[in-house]
Design a protein around this nucleic acid. Structure first.
Lengths: 136, 136
DNA sequence: TTTATAAACAGTAATCATTACTGTTATTAT
DNA sequence: ATAATAACAGTAATGATTACTGTTTATAAA
């Protein structure tokens, strides 16, 4: 059982995570370097993994681009804009899994312990831009 | 607009996809080599991308491991066993997104055009193994 | 309040999945 | 048949992430 020691770099990473929205490891790296010019990208990755293993943060994987990290560990889902690439929180009260019933293929393949839902679409900003383009 | 030409390799990839369950590019590569010993991994990737851009197949991204491919393009979701790593189809009739309402943060960030849901847990086989271990 | 320990570090090399490039082959429209 | 070019095999390059190595630093015990 490993004791986790305090580290200034990790504290900085936690603070930066709290004030940014779903940053990538590299985005965090760039910001941490303002406080610790010699910090290495490996340190950022190691600490992000330590924090997500502790359940202090959440790692998010998307089909496009690198993983992102979220300081919000409450169950919630994500919306990715296909146009601008931004990631938004989706405030969903709860997912209702309406399973198919029937004579076969009807049952769950196992015990569900966690869920990740990603919705893809066009964000409101990009929708507004689209309608402007049409008007112009 | 590019015209897609017939290719024997692509046909083989489609057939292999139809008879396997969520294979990775590498797993397909190994199988295609039985028919085309000189096929290259790049060819497999290129064709998988062509097919998923055409909507003939679906690309699946998971937090662990490489992408997987699915010949089932009907909307459906996936279950990943954390114990054995297998991926199962989830036969869900439809997701009910029960959005939070309130004075702010309540609205959708945009227009949802697609959804990907991954559930994580322990599959029935691994659950059975677990209870055997306890019994022994 | 030194000293031992091992976690964490910076820096760098290695890995893995995937894409891009290059010269050749095969499909298809003319 | 021939021309145009999609697709190919083979290989190099890329991007994200992890692993390694020798050093520094936080913490627990002497």
């Amino acid at each position: 059982m490993r004791r986790i020691k305090f580290s200034r770099q990790r504290e900085a990473i936690k603070e930066l995570l709290a004030e940014s929205s779903h940053p990538t490891a590299d985005e965090i790296y760039i910001k941490v370097r303002e406080q610790f010019p010699n910090v290495s990208l490996g340190t950022v990755y190691r600490n992000l993994n330590v924090l997500s293993e502790c359940g202090e943060i959440q790692k998010l994987t998307f089909p496009e681009g690198p993983d992102r990290f979220d300081c919000n560990v409450m169950p919630h889902y994500h919306f990715v804009c296909r146009s601008c690439g931004r990631v938004f929180d989706l405030h969903v009260r709860g997912l209702k899994l309406d399973m198919e019933d029937g004579t076969d293929g009807a049952e769950l393949p196992g015990r569900i312990e966690a869920q990740a839902l990603i919705c893809y679409g066009t964000c409101n900003d990009c929708l507004a831009d689209e309608s402007q383009d049409i008007g112009a």
